[in-house]
Measured scan of single mutants.
Amino acid sequence: NKFNKEMRNAYWEILHLPNLNEEQKNAFIQSLYDDPSQSANLLAEAKKLNDAQA
């Protein structure tokens, strides 16, 4: 299933973003579980936030 793979990839990438705190990571990961079809968008948002907090 495409979403499972996308979701897993997004999950791991978000988990390893160095500039997000636990609360931010948890919020993105919760959103992933709530709507796996948004994995790519959530990952993009997480990366933007990560870069902004660098």
Rank of each mutant, 00 (worst) to 15 (best):
K2Q: 13
K2F: 12
F3M: 11
F3R: 08
F3P: 15
F3S: 12
F3T: 13
N4V: 05
N4K: 02
N4M: 03
N4D: 15
N4H: 09
K5H: 02
K5W: 05
K5F: 01
K5A: 02
E6V: 08
E6Q: 06
M7Y: 07
R8H: 04
R8S: 03
R8P: 00
N9V: 14
N9W: 15
N9H: 15
N9E: 11
N9A: 15
A10Q: 01
Y11G: 02
Y11F: 10
Y11L: 13
W12P: 00
E13S: 15
E13F: 15
E13V: 15
E13L: 15
E13K: 15
I14Q: 00
I14G: 00
I14P: 00
L15M: 07
L15P: 00
H16A: 09
H16F: 07
H16N: 04
H16W: 05
L17D: 00
L17E: 01
L17I: 02
P18Y: 14
P18L: 10
N19Q: 08
N19F: 12
L20E: 00
L20W: 00
L20D: 00
N21T: 08
E23V: 11
N26I: 12
A27M: 13
I29S: 11
I29M: 04
Q30D: 04
S31Q: 07
L32F: 02
Y33Q: 03
Y33M: 04
D34V: 09
D34M: 14
D34H: 14
D35V: 12
P36D: 01
P36N: 06
P36A: 07
S37D: 06
Q38K: 07
Q38L: 08
S39W: 15
S39F: 15
A40F: 15
A40V: 10
A40P: 06
N41E: 05
N41V: 05
N41L: 10
L42A: 05
L42F: 14
L42T: 01
L42I: 10
L43A: 09
L43V: 06
L43I: 04
E45Y: 15
A46K: 00
A46D: 00
A46N: 00
A46M: 01
A46G: 04
K47H: 04
K47E: 04
K47Y: 11
K48P: 01
K48G: 10
L49S: 06
L49T: 09
L49Y: 10
L49F: 14
L49A: 08
N50F: 02
N50V: 03
N50S: 08
D51Y: 13
D51E: 13
D51A: 11
D51T: 15
D51H: 09
A52N: 14
A52K: 09
Q53W: 11
Q53H: 07
A54I: 06
